[in-house]
Amino acid sequence: MSPLRIAAAAGAVVVALVLQVSFFSHLAWDGIVPNLCLLVVVGAALTRGPQFAAVLGFAAGLALDLAPPADHIAGRWALALAVVGYVAGRVRREGRPTPGTVVATVAASSFVGTSVFALTGLILSDPALGIPDLLQTVVLSVIWDVVLTPFVLPPVMLMFRRLEPDRSLA
């Protein structure tokens, strides 16, 4: 594990988080923005596997939980993205994933991530929202994430692949 890779992963998460809250808020659809942090975690999962991605997901989720303007109970995004990193990492097979696999993984991960977050909210009743609102949010965020996939996933996956050659290909 090179310090360079840790720094690059942290940098990608910080850039994704800042763009998500400060730039994409201007393009928000009903307040829903593409979850760039989730896309970075999926990118890491598809290139580096479940362990690295789960830890990166936990760290990225923690940043989402604590960086302003977040006000929900901390640990919820950390839980959701750690699960996403692990599940998406299990998709990784021998060789490089096809574009179809990538898009399908993003859609599934986005659904799982947003749902886990929403479910913890339901359990903690933070805030008290109806099921239709939750479903609408989940569906819209899956669409947003899939739309952004062609722009975000290739550079992120290239970055993780460049930093350390994939040993499973050797």
Binding site: F58, A74, G75, A78
Partner: peptide, 30 residues
């Protein structure tokens, strides 16, 4: 934990369990 075997074929579920427990601890604290 993540420094040890990042590319082992069978992922350790212990990592995920640890992360989930850490998240739940944070939720409880917060």
């Amino acid at each position: 934990h993540w420094g040890r075997d990042p590319d082992r074929d069978r992922p350790k579920t212990s990592v995920l369990v640890a992360l989930v427990l850490a998240s739940l601890t944070l939720i409880t604290l917060d």
